[in-house]
Design a binder for these strands. Structure first.
Lengths: 252, 252
DNA sequence: CCCCACCGTTCGGCATCGTCGAACGCGGGT
DNA sequence: ACCCGCGTTCGACGATGCCGAACGGTGGGG
């Protein structure tokens, strides 16, 4: 007899129960049918409700199957939602690091920028929204590739953008292992000469990787001469990513 | 910030991850993407697999979304599966109690008999498979009504079959409360004069009520003259129900 | 008005169960 | 042979899930 995760098992039972019901069920009916205490059933069904798998009628408080189950073929997060949730934090990160901030979502051929905050100085800067960054040559690309699912491995031919672009598949695989192990990625002029970046994953409900946030700027502003990020940059970016991720979890 | 059940939340994230993936995922990919330890992810995904929500490829061990999610509109248990699983236990119960054994599943208008074991004597007996028993006048009906979901309340007009049939809604509600509280139901000639029965719910995966098993026979063979079931009858029936229920859980 | 019944939801103590590092056995590649 | 990555198992431990008690709300009846 293999062991199962009891609460997960109960969640599946609740979903089946609601699916087979002729109409919405009261919590007490769910709990009684499954032989659970009401607060126990409530905790599980609330989690399923927050995940969109269960729908609760506002007037009657009855529960039924949610759209999330039927729409399981559609995953990920709406880029509009991501941008509107992330704006304030991205602005604060730019102020704090004095670097530009980019937020991207995974797409089949790369990481698409959905939000861009300029570096807070007087320099000439160009808005990069909707630009698709190659996976292998950017910190954002590496992060979304490492932490999001459903993305095919990049083409074996890794295009060269600069002298520093990783074009050997083996070297790139090593780099990706480092990214997964570390939980963040860096970029040292692989796409644009002299430009560096540090990127951290954004996680949605349940830890699902839904995108990435990065700080970017001149190499010497992002890294020490020995190549490690300047003090506080990874921490600040990670802190911002965590705040955005939390709101993504709540929002879902 | 409302609290959620962490493992249930992770289960929903895994389902979403698999739903959004371009193809089947390895366990390590699931775990890495969600930032979980492999055994943690394994425990959850195994539970989902056993529930039919996740499919594991036998050759590659890769995981993908299972049919159980797509078929959430179809709940309950296949009566053929139930019969084939329950046969041996039902036979044993009939031998042990010297009574006939009936197994039923819930249906909109009553409890449908899917399996019938004759009383082990030479009496003339008629096979009752596919007979639909009224909820309010039979032990089987009361049990499936009490412990299965999605069944509308019986019509307010409770049909009379014998002098002993409960036809007052209030009295029937009291009886149903007793059934739910006790976990089993009895029948004292409410459908057929002189025929008694004791019934216990069958539970499928996660505790979901999927049917009922009952022993039935002449009133004086099922009950004492004071109306309580004879010694061991409830226990034997419950024991059989538990065994069947366990195999239903494993089987799913 | 009050009372009652039932409801979903919250609270908090506690012990069970979920988590996860370490390890295992397997298969494939060199 | 060794190495690597895999899914799966094991067992210690403490975090989290469980659930009794309670709360506040709603509706119905007297």
């Amino acid at each position: 007899m293999t062991r199962s995760i009891q609460s997960v098992e109960r969640a599946t039972a609740i979903l089946r129960l609601l699916a087979g019901a002729a109409g919405p069920l009261r919590l007490s009916e769910v709990a009684g049918t499954l032989g659970l205490a009401k607060p126990t059933a409530f905790g599980i069904i609330r989690t399923l409700r927050d995940a969109g798998f269960v729908h609760q009628d506002q007037l009657t408080s009855d529960y039924s199957l949610g759209d999330g189950v039927r729409h399981l073929h559609r995953s990920g997060i709406d880029p509009h939602d991501l941008r509107s949730l992330a704006t304030n934090w991205a602005d604060a990160l730019a102020s704090r690091t004095r670097l530009e901030v980019l937020i991207a979502v995974p797409e089949r051929d790369g990481a698409r920028i959905v939000h861009h905050v300029f570096r807070p100085d007087d320099s000439e800067q160009e808005l990069r929204i909707d630009e698709v960054l190659p996976f292998h040559a950017t910190a954002l690309g590496k992060v979304v590739l490492a932490f999001s699912a459903g993305i095919a491995s990049p083409s074996p031919d890794l295009e060269r953008y600069t002298r520093r672009t990783l074009t050997q598949r083996a070297a790139f695989d090593v780099e990706m292992s480092r990214v997964r192990e570390r939980g963040w990625a860096d970029e040292h002029g692989e796409l644009t000469p002299g430009v560096g970046a540090v990127s951290v994953p954004l996680r949605g409900f349940g830890g699902l990787g839904v995108g990435a946030v990065a700080v970017s700027g001149p190499l010497e502003r992002v890294f020490h001469t020995v190549g490690a990020p300047r003090d506080g940059i990874v921490a600040a970016t990670a802190s911002t990513a965590a705040a955005i991720s939390r709101s993504l979890g709540v929002h879902a």
